[in-house]
Design a protein around this nucleic acid. Structure first.
Lengths: 95, 95
DNA sequence: CCGTTGATGATCAAGAATGACCTGGCCAAC
DNA sequence: GTTGGCCAGGTCATTCTTGATCATCAACGG
């Protein structure tokens, strides 16, 4: 699924024009991105939640030089599916 | 940030009615959820990608009984921020 | 609609960190 | 007001992480 698919969906389901559909998708995603960058968490019942967490991993590995690489900190975005979502993920009844 | 915030955003930025804004947000998220449940990956350039991966973790830990607990498999949803997103996350210049 | 562009995934390794289990409380979402 | 998601805590296995490169494909322009 790509951005186009979401836009198509809005065209069909919500009767949006193509440009409006694309813009809407981008607006939502951009906003979520900015919220996360601001350190805010996103929590949508029935879907899941995004949280920004400080990265504790301090070392990576460069296999070419076989040496450890110090990772200068940072943050991670963690996504956790909601309850229902998680439950459905466990059920492999889909296929 | 909650669903309401995203809806408010569409009301202001896209001039949507409240109900349409909420419905739009839900439609998009629901669709993404269903795609993931179907095993499909979602890839939005500039934002990030969601992928469903088989869960290899086979054992958890019950500290109360101090025993291993078999985790009956399943799938995980992994979110990876895009390049730009990741770069900005590293910069802690926000605070 | 096709071609171009450039982001993204996979890969290797090894080590560090996170996840998952459960239970209860608290607070947020609905 | 009610439901339910998150946190914490212990422990261990799984997974993530880093970097460079190529192939692939999403995104966009013509």
């Amino acid at each position: 699924m790509i951005k186009n698919d979401l836009a198509n969906l809005l065209e069909r389901k919500a009767n949006f024009s193509r440009s409006k559909a694309v813009l809407t998708v981008e607006t939502i995603l951009e906003t979520m991105k900015k919220a996360l960058l601001a350190g805010e968490k996103i929590e949508i019942r029935g879907f899941g939640s995004f949280r920004v967490m400080p990265k504790k991993t301090g070392f990576g590995r460069d296999i070419r030089r076989n040496r450890q690489i110090p990772i200068s900190g940072g943050r991670r975005v963690k996504f956790r599916p909601g309850q229902d979502f998680k439950k459905q993920l466990k059920q492999q009844s889909i296929e």
